[in-house]
Amino acid sequence: MIEIEKLYFSYPGIPVLEDLSTTFKEGRIYGLLGENGVGKSTLFKLMCALLTTKHGTIKIDGTVVERKPSCLSKIYYVPEDFDGPDIAIKNYAAGVSQFYPNYDDELFARLLADFEIDANRKFTNLSLGQRKRAVIALALALKTDYLFLDEPTNGLDIPSKALFRRMMAAAMDEKRTIIISTHQVRDVENLLDHIMILDRRSVLLDKSVSDIQQEYEFGVSANAPEGSLYVEPGLGGCTYICENKSGEESRMNIEILFNYINLKNKQK
């Protein structure tokens, strides 16, 4: 479990995270959402000890996050832009995988084959999407307890996005925690177990998908129902979110949910 307590972080003159407290539990795929600049990538870097906290603590399995082997071997981070070194994918994987005891070489080979990436090719000879596919395959094969993916579907083509979702679903188990930060919410909508929406100063929403579905009703209709909390007109009718009075769960629309929560926060 990752426990974040009263976390404060700022870049020179720019406060990013203020008094953030939350937890990430095992066996869940978290969707970390927020407007640009609220600190999603910064939070990932703090959880990997790539940045130093100003105040507050981040604990992984009860131990404060530090740049030391016992902590780093539990986590892996895939940033939004992965350039990769000027060597073949298989060499990079051979070097990195030694440090991760649960690494599955067969899985890596299978994932690369599924993604149609040749392990003999150098990262520098690949497109952004191909590099992304290669590093996602490696990240999943390392089988770390905690996996942080920053905009994983950026640069992926449509078939790769579907493949990514399948891989993520297959990679999930009760011990793992995967946190995905993304603006492409439709790409990962069906994957997520838990949604966290961040604002610069607070966590606006921190709920499981099933709680959200029990609390809210999502739908599309020619006219939005009376008492809708947020409505977005479109060509096919109005997409809306309203309180769930019937108790029946509807298919969650993260984009509408995000816009509603953000709007509610700004109106405060």
Binding site: R67, L72, Y76, Y77, P85
Partner: peptide
């Protein structure tokens, strides 16, 4: 800042 994280997150001590 862009590529250095690869080195930093290698699970080895300083």
């Amino acid at each position: 800042r862009k590529k250095g994280y690869i080195y930093a997150i290698i699970p080895a001590s300083t």
